[in-house]
Amino acid sequence: MTSYAHPEVLVDTDWVAAHLNDPNVRLVESNEDILLYDQGHIPGAVKIDWLAELNDPVQRDYLQRAEFEKLLASKGISNDTTVVFYGDKNNWWATYAFWVFKLFGHKDARILNGGRAKWIAEGRELSRETPSYPQGSYSAPERDDGTIRAFRDQVRTHITQGGTALVDVRSPQEFSGERTHMPEYPQEGTLRGGHIPTAANIPWAKAVKEDSTFKSADELSELYGAQGVTPDKDVVTYCRIGERSSHTWFVLTYLLGYPKVRNYDGSWTEWGNGVGLPIEKSYQG
């Protein structure tokens, strides 16, 4: 069996349980539901609210360097802290926070394999106590938007070039144009349905097993390789706002070791509203 390309970025629940009091480790919970943390979290974990803390409050963008430094210091995180992310919904929002941390080059970021659901399923301890840590010392470089982040015009060029792959990680209904949001979610926010031409549709959650842990490297390699998403290509992932696709970005980059993967966070809410941008739509309803 092939092993993950970067197994060091994944930790399991036993590892977390053994490091609950490790001052060099900071557990960070990032959920879609912002009060889930308050219902109980892994003892010692701090919360990061992806919307309120990672996004610019006005412009559609992420926080800037100074804000990032301030945020991390306030959570007791320093440059050399091992940050372990976990969260609800197969670590969907945990990988999103992980990706934002990587935009600022945080060195030692990891994911709790299985996330919040696995910790709870194993009957492990939860706490409602909000921990307090001494202020950290954090010095970040300017946000790097060129290595792991893609923008609309880059994607427009990307789809005309050889040696590239584009992965639409949304549901098949969103991909076909039948819906502009996930099934069971009300449909609004995007004017057009469909997908970006040349995209392969590989829904993000296919990368995890029923217990929320990641599939094996062999299974993942088959999942993406079968649709032409191979390590020799320049790969871009996208979804609706860039969060589901951060999960696939994580899988391709760290579990399969693809050397060039970028997440297009503008995603369908930008592309599907863009004037004159090419769209493929298979849904005929």
Binding site: E32, D33, H181, M182, E184, Y185, P186, Q187, E188, G189
Partner: peptide, 9 residues
């Protein structure tokens, strides 16, 4: 009633 931002009903 339904909510587009987080799937609540």
């Amino acid at each position: 009633g339904g909510n587009p931002s987080c799937g609540d009903v």
